[in-house]
């Protein structure tokens, strides 16, 4: 079973890398046929990644959300799922060229960290809350990655319109729609986290570095949503906020590597 999970991981890695190349080809050559293959291979990769996580959950007997390896693969999965949704609803394939490098980077990183299944320390043994808290977070972060990719494209796309990229207003809409899906989930993550902290540690909020980093991420997107009402902040500045937001997301996600605090729980 554990082996199966790793085989599926490799299959996912290869398919997603192949789909990246196909998307690139599609972008440069504008071949609809290639585009369809890119989408197909990308979805195959998503299916493999899902299988990999499923097998891992079966082995561990819980959601795959408890060490760096599992978090990273889950993060990559969230991005792929959010991307598939956005690609479908906007018929927007060139975005893949900008999203997949993030996914491949994460999977590459995941293959360098130990992937052994480890038992849970006491603070993490609240299975249902942990599972919901992290799965919602993974989807939210996935949509932020998609918004980030569209923001990068927005900045690459000058006003004079680079013809192999979609127009700016479409890119702006894709970013906004992604954030609109992800932001409410992000807020839910904060609230669920507070609920959990309240039972585990007796306080719903404690300015613990990881909590605070999550709040910073959420506030950047609050800023983005409010910039929406200001003419002067549309376009470039909003795109920059989205890039900052994703930097904060990655920072929050990998925060336990270098932030202290209760999220790296140790008894005394």
């Amino acid at each position: 079973m554990g082996k199966m999970s790793l085989y599926f991981f490799s299959a996912a890695f290869l398919s997603l890398a192949a789909s990246f190349l196909l998307y690139l080809w599609y972008l440069l050559k504008r071949g609809e046929g290639v585009g369809r293959y890119a989408t197909l291979v990308n979805r195959l990769g998503a299916a493999f990644l899902t299988m990999s996580l499923l097998f891992r959950s079966i082995v561990a007997g819980r959601g795959p959300f408890s060490n760096q390896y599992e978090f990273t693969v889950a993060f990559a999965w969230g991005i792929v799922i959010a991307y598939i949704y956005i690609e479908r609803s906007f018929q927007f394939r060139s975005l893949g060229v900008f999203v997949l490098p993030v996914v491949l980077g994460l999977l590459g990183y995941a293959s360098t960290v130990p992937s052994t299944v480890e038992p849970l320390v006491p603070a993490l043994q609240n299975n249902l809350l942990l599972t919901v808290h992290v799965s919602v977070a993974v989807i939210a972060y996935g949509t932020f990655a998609v918004a980030f990719a569209a923001a990068i494209m927005y900045l690459c796309q000058s006003r004079r319109s680079v013809n192999w990229m979609p127009p700016q207003d479409k890119l702006e809409e894709v970013s906004y729609r992604s954030v609109v899906i992800g932001f409410p989930m992000m807020v839910l993550v904060l609230v669920l986290g507070a609920l959990w902290a309240n039972t585990a540690w007796g306080r719903y909020w404690g300015w613990d570095p990881k909590e605070t980093a999550t709040l910073v991420t959420a506030l950047l997107y609050v800023g983005y949503l409010h910039a929406y009402n200001l003419r002067g902040w549309r376009g470039t500045r909003s795109a920059l906020l989205l890039i900052l937001g994703f930097v904060a997301t990655v920072f929050t996600f990998f925060g336990n590597l270098f932030l202290g605090g209760l999220h790296s729980y140790s008894g005394f």
């Binding site: 709040l215 910073v216 506030l219 800023g223 925060g255 932030l259």
Partner: peptide, 12 residues
């Protein structure tokens, strides 16, 4: 909102 964000970032 952005000032509060910056303050929280410093605190993190």
């Amino acid at each position: 909102i952005l000032l509060i964000t910056a303050a929280c970032l410093a605190g993190a």
